[in-house]
Amino acid sequence: MSSPATPRKTKLPFGSFLERILSKLGLRGRTLVIAIPTLWLFVFFLVPFLVVAKISLSEAMIARPPYSSIWNWDDGVLNLTLNFGNYLFLLEDTLYFAAYMESVKIAFVSTVFALLIGFPMAYTIARSPDSRRNILLMLVILPFWTSFLLRVYAWIGFLKTNGLINAFLLATGIIDEPLIMLQTDFAVYVGIVYTYLPFMILPLYANLVKLDDALLEAASDLGAKPAMTFLTVTLPLAVPGIIAGSMLVFIPAIGEFVIPALLGGPDTLMIGSVLWNEFFSNRDWPVASAVALVMLAVLVVPIMILRKAQAASEGASQ
Protein backbone atom coordinates (compact mmCIF):
# COMPACT_ATOMS: atom_id res chain seq x y z
CA MET A 1 0.00 0.00 0.00
CA SER A 2 2.12 2.85 -1.17
CA SER A 3 0.56 6.04 -2.29
CA PRO A 4 2.35 8.11 -4.92
CA ALA A 5 2.28 11.28 -2.88
CA THR A 6 3.62 10.29 0.51
CA PRO A 7 1.97 12.42 3.14
CA ARG A 8 4.23 14.67 5.12
CA LYS A 9 5.61 12.90 8.14
CA THR A 10 3.64 13.95 11.16
CA LYS A 11 4.85 14.23 14.67
CA LEU A 12 1.95 12.30 16.10
CA PRO A 13 0.31 9.92 13.68
CA PHE A 14 -1.32 8.21 16.66
CA GLY A 15 -4.58 10.10 16.23
CA SER A 16 -5.04 9.11 12.60
CA PHE A 17 -4.02 5.57 13.44
CA LEU A 18 -6.58 5.34 16.23
CA GLU A 19 -9.23 6.80 14.00
CA ARG A 20 -8.59 4.21 11.29
CA ILE A 21 -8.95 1.36 13.78
CA LEU A 22 -12.14 2.82 15.18
CA SER A 23 -13.73 3.31 11.79
CA LYS A 24 -12.93 -0.30 10.94
CA LEU A 25 -14.73 -1.31 14.12
CA GLY A 26 -17.66 0.83 13.05
CA LEU A 27 -17.27 3.23 15.95
CA ARG A 28 -17.29 6.98 15.66
CA GLY A 29 -14.79 8.86 17.78
CA ARG A 30 -17.47 11.16 19.09
CA THR A 31 -19.61 8.31 20.38
CA LEU A 32 -16.62 6.81 22.11
CA VAL A 33 -15.57 10.10 23.70
CA ILE A 34 -19.02 10.39 25.24
CA ALA A 35 -19.42 6.71 26.07
CA ILE A 36 -16.13 6.10 27.93
CA PRO A 37 -16.56 8.56 30.82
CA THR A 38 -20.34 8.20 30.94
CA LEU A 39 -20.20 4.43 31.25
CA TRP A 40 -17.32 4.47 33.72
CA LEU A 41 -19.02 6.92 36.03
CA PHE A 42 -22.37 5.23 35.60
CA VAL A 43 -20.97 1.87 36.70
CA PHE A 44 -18.56 3.07 39.38
CA PHE A 45 -20.38 6.08 40.76
CA LEU A 46 -24.11 6.04 40.08
CA VAL A 47 -24.89 2.32 40.30
CA PRO A 48 -23.14 2.00 43.70
CA PHE A 49 -25.70 4.42 45.15
CA LEU A 50 -28.51 2.27 43.86
CA VAL A 51 -26.84 -0.74 45.49
CA VAL A 52 -26.62 1.18 48.77
CA ALA A 53 -30.30 2.10 48.49
CA LYS A 54 -31.17 -1.52 47.85
CA ILE A 55 -29.13 -2.87 50.75
CA SER A 56 -30.52 -0.23 53.11
CA LEU A 57 -33.91 -1.85 52.54
CA SER A 58 -32.73 -5.36 53.32
CA GLU A 59 -32.24 -7.12 56.61
CA ALA A 60 -28.93 -7.87 58.24
CA MET A 61 -28.21 -11.57 58.53
CA ILE A 62 -25.27 -13.82 59.17
CA ALA A 63 -24.29 -14.78 55.66
CA ARG A 64 -21.96 -13.79 52.88
CA PRO A 65 -22.74 -11.05 51.99
CA PRO A 66 -24.33 -10.21 55.35
CA TYR A 67 -27.77 -9.05 54.25
CA SER A 68 -30.99 -10.55 52.98
CA SER A 69 -32.11 -10.29 49.40
CA ILE A 70 -34.98 -7.89 48.88
CA TRP A 71 -36.42 -9.81 45.94
CA ASN A 72 -36.82 -13.45 45.13
CA TRP A 73 -38.59 -15.50 42.47
CA ASP A 74 -41.31 -17.70 43.80
CA ASP A 75 -43.26 -19.81 41.29
CA GLY A 76 -42.57 -17.29 38.59
CA VAL A 77 -43.72 -14.40 40.75
CA LEU A 78 -41.27 -11.72 41.76
CA ASN A 79 -41.58 -11.09 45.45
CA LEU A 80 -40.27 -7.81 46.74
CA THR A 81 -39.61 -7.59 50.46
CA LEU A 82 -38.80 -4.03 51.46
CA ASN A 83 -37.62 -3.62 54.98
CA PHE A 84 -37.81 -0.08 56.33
CA GLY A 85 -36.66 -1.35 59.70
CA ASN A 86 -33.19 0.13 59.28
CA TYR A 87 -34.59 3.62 58.86
CA LEU A 88 -36.99 3.12 61.77
CA PHE A 89 -34.02 1.95 63.79
CA LEU A 90 -32.18 5.20 63.01
CA LEU A 91 -35.21 7.11 64.25
CA GLU A 92 -35.69 5.07 67.38
CA ASP A 93 -32.12 4.93 68.58
CA THR A 94 -31.29 8.47 69.74
CA LEU A 95 -27.60 7.87 69.04
CA TYR A 96 -28.05 8.38 65.32
CA PHE A 97 -30.11 11.53 65.59
CA ALA A 98 -27.61 12.92 68.08
CA ALA A 99 -24.74 12.06 65.73
CA TYR A 100 -26.39 13.85 62.80
CA MET A 101 -27.05 16.93 64.95
CA GLU A 102 -23.52 16.89 66.36
CA SER A 103 -22.06 16.63 62.84
CA VAL A 104 -24.12 19.58 61.63
CA LYS A 105 -23.11 21.60 64.68
CA ILE A 106 -19.40 20.80 64.35
CA ALA A 107 -19.44 21.43 60.60
CA PHE A 108 -21.30 24.73 61.08
CA VAL A 109 -19.03 26.10 63.81
CA SER A 110 -15.91 25.04 61.87
CA THR A 111 -17.25 26.75 58.75
CA VAL A 112 -17.79 30.02 60.64
CA PHE A 113 -14.25 29.95 61.99
CA ALA A 114 -12.79 29.03 58.60
CA LEU A 115 -14.63 32.04 57.13
CA LEU A 116 -13.40 34.38 59.87
CA ILE A 117 -9.79 33.32 59.27
CA GLY A 118 -10.06 32.76 55.52
CA PHE A 119 -11.71 36.04 54.55
CA PRO A 120 -8.94 38.38 55.76
CA MET A 121 -6.36 36.07 54.21
CA ALA A 122 -8.14 35.90 50.85
CA TYR A 123 -8.64 39.67 50.93
CA THR A 124 -4.97 40.33 51.67
CA ILE A 125 -3.84 37.99 48.91
CA ALA A 126 -6.25 39.48 46.39
CA ARG A 127 -5.09 43.02 47.22
CA SER A 128 -1.36 42.31 47.24
CA PRO A 129 0.87 43.21 44.28
CA ASP A 130 0.99 40.75 41.36
CA SER A 131 4.47 39.48 42.09
CA ARG A 132 3.64 38.52 45.65
CA ARG A 133 0.13 37.31 44.94
CA ASN A 134 1.11 34.12 43.12
CA ILE A 135 3.55 33.12 45.83
CA LEU A 136 0.96 33.65 48.56
CA LEU A 137 -1.61 31.71 46.56
CA MET A 138 0.85 28.88 46.10
CA LEU A 139 1.49 28.89 49.86
CA VAL A 140 -2.24 28.43 50.42
CA ILE A 141 -2.46 25.53 47.98
CA LEU A 142 0.74 23.73 48.98
CA PRO A 143 -0.52 22.23 52.28
CA PHE A 144 -3.47 20.80 50.37
CA TRP A 145 -1.02 18.72 48.35
CA THR A 146 0.82 17.34 51.34
CA SER A 147 -0.70 14.38 53.08
CA PHE A 148 -3.95 15.21 54.83
CA LEU A 149 -3.56 12.33 57.26
CA LEU A 150 -0.09 13.44 58.29
CA ARG A 151 -1.15 17.04 58.74
CA VAL A 152 -3.97 15.97 61.05
CA TYR A 153 -1.50 13.73 62.85
CA ALA A 154 0.79 16.74 63.39
CA TRP A 155 -1.92 18.32 65.52
CA ILE A 156 -1.72 15.47 68.01
CA GLY A 157 1.77 16.65 68.90
CA PHE A 158 0.49 20.22 69.25
CA LEU A 159 -2.64 19.59 71.25
CA LYS A 160 -1.87 16.78 73.63
CA THR A 161 -1.50 17.40 77.34
CA ASN A 162 2.30 17.24 77.19
CA GLY A 163 2.33 18.71 73.68
CA LEU A 164 3.83 21.81 72.16
CA ILE A 165 1.05 24.29 72.91
CA ASN A 166 0.89 23.37 76.57
CA ALA A 167 4.68 23.40 76.83
CA PHE A 168 4.73 26.91 75.37
CA LEU A 169 1.91 28.22 77.60
CA LEU A 170 3.45 26.69 80.71
CA ALA A 171 6.90 28.03 79.91
CA THR A 172 5.60 31.56 79.39
CA GLY A 173 3.60 31.37 82.61
CA ILE A 174 0.23 31.98 80.94
CA ILE A 175 -1.20 28.85 82.49
CA ASP A 176 -0.20 26.86 85.56
CA GLU A 177 -1.73 23.57 84.57
CA PRO A 178 -1.77 22.01 81.13
CA LEU A 179 -4.99 22.43 79.18
CA ILE A 180 -6.80 19.35 78.01
CA MET A 181 -7.29 19.91 74.31
CA LEU A 182 -6.75 16.61 72.55
CA GLN A 183 -9.76 14.29 72.42
CA THR A 184 -12.20 17.15 72.77
CA ASP A 185 -14.57 18.86 70.34
CA PHE A 186 -12.15 21.79 70.34
CA ALA A 187 -9.48 19.62 68.73
CA VAL A 188 -11.97 18.52 66.08
CA TYR A 189 -12.81 22.16 65.30
CA VAL A 190 -9.11 22.97 64.97
CA GLY A 191 -8.55 19.96 62.73
CA ILE A 192 -11.44 20.76 60.41
CA VAL A 193 -10.65 24.48 60.13
CA TYR A 194 -7.00 23.65 59.51
CA THR A 195 -7.70 21.01 56.88
CA TYR A 196 -10.34 22.87 54.92
CA LEU A 197 -9.03 26.44 55.18
CA PRO A 198 -7.60 26.36 51.61
CA PHE A 199 -11.06 25.36 50.32
CA MET A 200 -12.44 28.51 51.95
CA ILE A 201 -9.66 30.83 50.79
CA LEU A 202 -9.56 29.86 47.10
CA PRO A 203 -13.19 30.65 46.10
CA LEU A 204 -13.09 33.80 48.24
CA TYR A 205 -9.89 34.86 46.53
CA ALA A 206 -11.37 34.16 43.09
CA ASN A 207 -14.21 36.54 43.93
CA LEU A 208 -12.22 39.23 45.70
CA VAL A 209 -9.52 39.45 43.04
CA LYS A 210 -12.16 40.61 40.57
CA LEU A 211 -13.11 43.47 42.86
CA ASP A 212 -12.44 46.70 40.98
CA ASP A 213 -10.25 49.18 42.85
CA ALA A 214 -12.24 51.99 41.26
CA LEU A 215 -15.33 50.92 43.19
CA LEU A 216 -13.50 51.16 46.50
CA GLU A 217 -12.01 54.52 45.57
CA ALA A 218 -15.38 55.83 44.45
CA ALA A 219 -16.92 54.78 47.76
CA SER A 220 -14.22 56.47 49.80
CA ASP A 221 -14.32 59.61 47.57
CA LEU A 222 -18.02 59.80 48.27
CA GLY A 223 -17.18 59.87 51.95
CA ALA A 224 -17.76 56.28 53.00
CA LYS A 225 -15.69 55.14 55.93
CA PRO A 226 -13.64 51.97 55.37
CA ALA A 227 -16.08 49.91 57.44
CA MET A 228 -18.99 51.28 55.40
CA THR A 229 -17.20 50.54 52.12
CA PHE A 230 -16.50 47.04 53.30
CA LEU A 231 -20.11 46.36 54.28
CA THR A 232 -21.75 47.94 51.25
CA VAL A 233 -19.24 47.26 48.44
CA THR A 234 -16.76 44.49 49.22
CA LEU A 235 -18.99 42.12 51.16
CA PRO A 236 -21.96 42.03 48.74
CA LEU A 237 -19.61 41.40 45.81
CA ALA A 238 -17.94 38.55 47.70
CA VAL A 239 -21.18 36.74 48.52
CA PRO A 240 -20.86 33.98 45.87
CA GLY A 241 -17.32 33.29 47.10
CA ILE A 242 -18.47 33.24 50.72
CA ILE A 243 -21.23 30.76 49.94
CA ALA A 244 -19.04 28.53 47.77
CA GLY A 245 -16.20 28.52 50.30
CA SER A 246 -18.53 27.86 53.23
CA MET A 247 -20.16 24.92 51.47
CA LEU A 248 -16.77 23.50 50.48
CA VAL A 249 -15.91 23.41 54.19
CA PHE A 250 -19.34 22.41 55.50
CA ILE A 251 -20.03 19.50 53.14
CA PRO A 252 -16.86 17.44 53.67
CA ALA A 253 -16.88 18.30 57.38
CA ILE A 254 -20.27 16.60 57.80
CA GLY A 255 -18.93 13.28 56.57
CA GLU A 256 -15.50 13.62 58.17
CA PHE A 257 -14.06 10.47 59.69
CA VAL A 258 -10.29 10.88 60.08
CA ILE A 259 -10.34 14.12 62.10
CA PRO A 260 -12.78 12.97 64.82
CA ALA A 261 -11.03 9.58 64.89
CA LEU A 262 -7.59 11.08 65.54
CA LEU A 263 -8.35 14.30 67.41
CA GLY A 264 -11.81 13.79 68.89
CA GLY A 265 -12.68 12.10 72.13
CA PRO A 266 -15.15 9.39 73.05
CA ASP A 267 -17.86 12.07 73.32
CA THR A 268 -17.29 13.36 69.81
CA LEU A 269 -20.03 11.67 67.89
CA MET A 270 -19.90 12.39 64.18
CA ILE A 271 -21.97 10.61 61.61
CA GLY A 272 -18.94 9.63 59.51
CA SER A 273 -17.51 7.73 62.49
CA VAL A 274 -20.90 6.16 63.21
CA LEU A 275 -21.09 4.87 59.64
CA TRP A 276 -17.51 3.57 59.88
CA ASN A 277 -18.20 1.70 63.12
CA GLU A 278 -21.51 0.36 61.89
CA PHE A 279 -19.69 -1.11 58.93
CA PHE A 280 -16.33 -2.18 60.33
CA SER A 281 -17.16 -3.02 63.96
CA ASN A 282 -20.81 -4.07 63.91
CA ARG A 283 -20.67 -5.42 60.35
CA ASP A 284 -24.23 -4.27 59.90
CA TRP A 285 -24.23 -3.40 56.20
CA PRO A 286 -27.93 -2.52 55.93
CA VAL A 287 -27.80 -0.02 58.81
CA ALA A 288 -24.54 1.45 57.47
CA SER A 289 -26.29 1.90 54.10
CA ALA A 290 -29.26 3.60 55.72
CA VAL A 291 -26.90 5.92 57.63
CA ALA A 292 -25.15 6.78 54.33
CA LEU A 293 -28.42 7.58 52.56
CA VAL A 294 -29.67 9.78 55.38
CA MET A 295 -26.30 11.57 55.36
CA LEU A 296 -26.73 12.12 51.64
CA ALA A 297 -30.20 13.55 52.27
CA VAL A 298 -28.72 15.96 54.84
CA LEU A 299 -26.17 17.07 52.22
CA VAL A 300 -28.56 17.59 49.30
CA VAL A 301 -29.44 21.18 50.22
CA PRO A 302 -25.84 22.32 50.90
CA ILE A 303 -24.73 20.70 47.63
CA MET A 304 -27.47 22.51 45.71
CA ILE A 305 -26.49 25.82 47.33
CA LEU A 306 -22.86 25.18 46.35
CA ARG A 307 -23.83 24.45 42.73
CA LYS A 308 -25.82 27.65 42.56
CA ALA A 309 -23.01 29.75 44.06
CA GLN A 310 -20.47 28.25 41.68
CA ALA A 311 -22.72 28.87 38.69
CA ALA A 312 -23.22 32.46 39.88
CA SER A 313 -19.52 33.20 40.21
CA GLU A 314 -18.81 31.54 36.86
CA GLY A 315 -21.53 33.63 35.28
CA ALA A 316 -20.03 36.78 36.79
CA SER A 317 -16.60 36.04 35.38
CA GLN A 318 -17.78 35.57 31.82
Binding site: F44, F45, V47, P48, F49, V51, V52, I55, M247, L248, I251, P252, I254, G255, E256, F257, G272, L275, W276, F279, W285, A288, S289, A292, M295, L296, L299, I303, L306
Partner: peptide, 16 residues
Protein backbone atom coordinates in the same frame (compact mmCIF):
# COMPACT_ATOMS: atom_id res chain seq x y z
CA UNK B 1 -17.49 12.97 43.52
CA UNK B 2 -15.86 16.31 44.40
CA UNK B 3 -18.41 17.00 47.11
CA UNK B 4 -19.30 13.46 48.14
CA UNK B 5 -18.03 12.44 51.60
CA UNK B 6 -15.36 9.74 51.42
CA UNK B 7 -17.27 7.38 53.71
CA UNK B 8 -20.21 7.35 51.28
CA UNK B 9 -18.04 6.79 48.19
CA UNK B 10 -16.12 4.03 49.97
CA UNK B 11 -19.17 2.23 51.31
CA UNK B 12 -21.14 2.44 48.07
CA UNK B 13 -18.27 1.21 45.92
CA UNK B 14 -17.53 -1.68 48.24
CA UNK B 15 -21.17 -2.78 48.32
CA UNK B 16 -21.25 -2.62 44.55
Amino acid sequence: PLVMPDVIIGLSLLLM
